[in-house]
Simulated assay, not measured.
Amino acid sequence: MYYKDYINNFREYNSYEDFYQHYELNVPDEFNFAYDVVERAGLEFPDREALVWHDQEDVKRFTFADLSKASSRTAHYFKSLGINKGDAVMVMLKNRYEFWFCLLALHRIGAIAVPATHMLTKKDILYRNTKASIKAIVSIHDERLLQAVDETMEVSDSLKIRVLIEGQREGWSNLHEGIKGMSEVFERPTGVNRIKNEDTMLLYFTSGTTGDPKMVEHCFTYPLGHITTARYWHRVIDGGLHYTLADTGWAKAVWGKIYGQWLCGSAVFVAEYKKFTPTDVLVDIQKFGVTTFCAPPTIYRFLIQNGLREYDLSSLKHCTVAGEPLSAVVFSKFKGYTGIELCEAYGQTEVTVVSGTFRVLRLSLVLWVKQLPAMNCFWWMRTMNLLK
């Protein structure tokens, strides 16, 4: 959709070397995804579908105009609660559609979104409150989680605001009640509230493989880094429907559920499963006509083991994997059933895609990997001998 506006001298690349040498982002002096992509699309293509969401009982479809208006109302509500530019707001919403309302609203204000998993304990929440000076928490209605948040209130100096997306609880505000009647227009901040490219937009806590989790900050130009994710790795289709299987508490969600996909014109599909079962995924791909799909290799193994051949997956055009090693057996079986070669990529919370298999390459072996432009990669064998 708009990705071409952010690539210098855009054209189709004829080889990996051409891609690596000439791909270059065109970063404007001020970029804000909520205004420059979502609001723009809402005005220019108001009926264009952006988000298809469902849970066990309901299906909701949101256009760019819907999300632009909803995020504006949410931004006004957040401002009324005292959330301002630079404030850190922890968002624990699983795969609820309200996540997109809140994330875009925080972008509009210039506040810092801190996505987090609903599995956090009291200790985890207190640690994050302290390290990131969390001012507000937006949460699903989960009794264990809410109790943990409430208990941290007493010892967290920064935490002042608590918001529920549904239901009632003492000391908590209700999001849907709060946004009723709010204006559907939220003007781009100016003056002292002007949002700069270098301002912090997102903050994640890494998994803490060794020691406590570490904070990772991303500025407002971060979404542009996911053009390569969506166009050259996911290979999303303009007007298509992309499905990344990931909880919004993890960075993988913004890799595949918002930034690059919408910049490249693809809607995103989101399912809120109470309990994950492989057949639910297969049913959804068939029912909703998913065109591109991304999941860890383990998920593909589950799909194969649970009757993948019995479903009509003809809508799928490209599939990708990340997060763990892809076995040759899973690769071969999936290709045998669908004709699609799974394409791997590697990245971290601190960056976007670092290396992988990309659209500009015609590959027959999934083991071939290439680094992205602007990335300097060194490959090591297990013996720690430098390869490149």
Score class of each variant (00 low, 15 high):
283 V>F: 10
267 A>S: 14
208 G>C: 12
214 K>A: 03
251 A>L: 00
207 S>R: 13
297 P>W: 09
312 D>I: 03
251 A>V: 14
302 F>V: 01
258 I>C: 12
219 C>L: 09
312 D>Y: 11
246 A>P: 00
252 K>D: 06
213 P>Y: 09
300 Y>G: 05
238 D>H: 10
263 L>T: 06
314 S>P: 05
272 E>M: 13
265 G>T: 01
297 P>V: 11
251 A>D: 03
242 H>V: 03
258 I>W: 02
264 C>M: 04
272 E>Q: 14
272 E>W: 07
276 F>N: 03
258 I>M: 15
208 G>R: 13
225 G>E: 07
293 F>P: 01
272 E>F: 06
285 I>D: 01
296 P>E: 14
276 F>D: 00
254 V>L: 12
222 Y>L: 04
242 H>G: 02
271 A>L: 08
256 G>L: 08
235 R>Y: 00
313 L>I: 13
208 G>D: 11
259 Y>A: 00
283 V>E: 14
282 L>V: 07
276 F>K: 06
279 T>F: 05
258 I>F: 12
261 Q>N: 15
211 G>T: 03
267 A>Q: 01
225 G>R: 02
305 Q>E: 15
242 H>R: 03
308 L>H: 05
314 S>L: 06
260 G>N: 05
243 Y>L: 10
255 W>L: 10
256 G>S: 10
285 I>G: 00
273 Y>E: 04
294 C>R: 04
278 P>D: 06
308 L>G: 00
238 D>L: 09
281 V>Y: 02
295 A>R: 02
273 Y>L: 12
300 Y>W: 11
232 Y>S: 00
227 I>V: 11
274 K>H: 13
279 T>S: 14
244 T>P: 03
